[in-house]
């Protein structure tokens, strides 16, 4: 039985999904804070949100890299 492979797949799934979801959620939260009407808020909030979304984009590109055999073989 390929138990090792099973554990690897489970672990990789967990790490990948949690990374993407955490980054995207942070992006969403930072956007929400940046959209608040309050006066005192640092100006780097919105750029930071975009950085989070950007990193998610990188994760998607990595997914594409894995899917397309031309790159990963």
């Amino acid at each position: 039985m390929k138990w090792l492979e099973l554990v690897q797949v489970a672990g990789a799934t967990l790490i990948a999904a949690v990374t993407v979801v955490v980054l995207y959620s942070l992006g969403v939260r930072l956007t929400a804070i940046a959209g608040d009407v309050s006066e005192r808020k640092p100006s780097w909030l919105r750029p930071l949100a975009y950085v989070c979304f950007g990193l998610c984009g990188v994760a998607v590109l990595f997914g594409l890299y894995l899917i397309i055999p031309y790159f990963s073989k």
Binding site: K2, E5, L6, Q8, V9, A12, T13, L14, A16, A17, V20, V21, Y24, G63, L66, I67, S72
Partner: peptide, 16 residues
Amino acid sequence: ESSTASAILASSHLGF
């Protein structure tokens, strides 16, 4: 969706 995508990519590249 993220979980589905991760699981499919992981499974097709790690051999289970």
